[in-house]
Write a protein that binds this DNA or RNA. Structure first.
Lengths: 209, 209
DNA sequence: GTCACCAAGTGACCAATGGTCATATTTTGT
DNA sequence: ACAAAATATGACCATTGGTCACTTGGTGAC
C-alpha cells in the first residue's frame, strides 16, 4: 500500500507549488513588500497552511534561492560535460554562461544575491539551509573539476589550485555584478559583463600553460 | 550672526549622534531585530525625532554603510599615499588592507555587504544615497590610481585597464568573503583570506611587467 | 457501512513595529 | 515681550509575520 509514498509525493508537490506562488509574488512585488497573505492567496491556500511547509518567510525565500543554485548547477554541469573544448577554452565560458544566467533569470540571480539577508534569519538546522549549502558545494566542485580537466589536458598550469580558484570565481560571480549595481554611475562606460570578461581575460593569462 | 551656521552644525551633530546610537543598536541586535524605538531610546530622543533626520530605517542603515565606505576610503588613500612602495608592491596590500578592515571593523564590513538589502528601499533622490554612490566612486578612483601609479613606475603592464581592474577588485572584496560565508562548510580547509590572497597572487602574475 | 483517528488546512486573532501627526516645547528675530 | 519658526514628543495607526483552537476529509480497522 503506497499511501505513505503518495502522501509524501503530494506534500512535495504542494511544497513546490507554494514556491511557485512565492516566486510569482516575490519577484513581482519584491521581497519586502510582498506579504505571506499574498503568497497564500496566490497558492490558493490559507496563510496557516504555508507554515506547515515553511518555517518562515525567510525560509521560503531560501527555497527560491535554492532553485537558483539548481539552475546554475545545471548550466555549469553541461559546460563541464561538453567534450569539444579544452579546459582553458571552457574557462571564459564560465563567465559568459554566468552572464547568460543573470540575463535569462534576473529574478533568480537577484534571489541568489539576497542570501545574506535571508540566511541569517533561518535556523541553521533547517533542511532547506542544509541542502542550500550542499548545492553550493556542488557548484564549487563542478567548477574546480572543470579547472582540473584543463590541467589534465595540459591547457591549464598544474600548479594552479583548482579549489581556491573555484571559490575565487564564485566570489566574482556574487560580487562583481552587485558591485556594479552598487557603483551605479561610478563607471558609466562599463557594464558588468565588461568587468567580468576583462577579469577572466587577466586570469587566463595567469593560468594558461 | 552665525545662527544659521550654528544650527546647521548642531543639526549635523545630532544626525551623527543618531547614527552613533543606531550603530550600537543595529550592530548589537542585528538590523532585523533592532527597532526604531531602541534607536530612539539609545539616542535619547523620541522616535518621531529620528524621522526629522532620516526618512526611514533603511536610510539610517545607509548612513552607517556610508561610514563604512569612509573608513575604507581612508585606508586605501593612505596606501596610495605611501611612497616607499612600487605599484606592484601595493597591489597585494590592497587585499591585505581590506582583510584587515574586515577584521577590525566586522560590523561595518557587514553593513557594507547589506547594501542591496537597504538600498532598494530608499528613494533614489536622497542625499545619503547620492553621497554613498559618490564615496564608492572615490574608492574606485583611488584603486585605479594606485594601479596607474604602478604603470608609471613601470612595475605594472601599461596595457592593463586600471578602471576595469579596479572594479573587478572591488567586486572581489564584496564577493569573495560573502561567498565564503555562503559556502560555509563547502571548503572547510580554506578561510576567506586564503582565497583573496590566492586570487591576488594570480592577478599579479597577469599584470606585472 | 461506520466510526475513531489523524494529517491537512483554516482564518480570526495577537503582538510587534515602522511610520505619522496633532500637540507641546524651545529658540529666534524683532 | 511676543509671535513665528524650528525642533521634539509620544499616543496612535495600519500593516503584517506568525499562532492556534478548530474544522475538514481521507484512511484503515472492524
Amino acid at each position: 500500500m503506497g499511501v505513505v509514498e503518495r502522501k509524501e509525493r503530494e506534500r512535495e508537490l504542494r511544497s513546490e507549488s507554494i514556491i511557485d506562488a512565492a516566486e510569482r509574488i516575490f519577484f513581482d512585488k519584491g521581497f519586502e513588500h510582498a506579504t505571506m497573505n499574498d503568497v497564500a492567496e496566490e497558492a490558493e491556500l490559507s496563510k496557516g497552511a504555508l507554515y506547515l511547509y515553511f518555517h518562515s518567510k525567510n525560509e521560503l525565500c531560501m527555497a527560491i534561492l535554492q532553485r537558483s543554485l539548481l539552475i546554475l548547477k545545471g548550466i555549469f554541469k553541461s559546460l563541464k560535460g561538453n567534450n569539444n573544448q579544452t579546459g582553458i577554452e571552457k574557462f571564459p565560458e564560465l563567465a559568459s554562461e554566468f552572464i547568460n544566467f543573470t540575463k535569462q533569470y534576473p529574478n533568480h540571480y537577484n534571489a541568489l544575491l539576497s542570501y545574506r539577508e535571508h540566511r541569517e534569519n533561518c535556523p541553521v538546522t533547517g533542511k532547506i539551509i542544509k541542502s542550500t549549502i550542499e548545492e553550493n558545494r556542488n557548484i564549487n566542485n563542478i567548477i574546480s573539476e572543470i579547472i582540473r580537466a584543463g590541467q589534465i589536458d595540459k591547457t591549464i598550469k598544474t600548479d594552479i589550485d583548482a579549489d581556491k580558484l573555484s571559490l575565487a570565481l564564485w566570489g566574482n560571480f556574487t560580487g562583481i555584478m552587485p558591485s556594479s549595481i552598487l557603483s551605479e554611475k561610478v563607471m558609466p562606460n562599463f557594464n558588468p559583463e565588461d568587468i567580468i570578461e576583462y577579469h577572466f581575460q587577466l586570469l587566463i593569462n595567469a593560468i594558461r600553460t
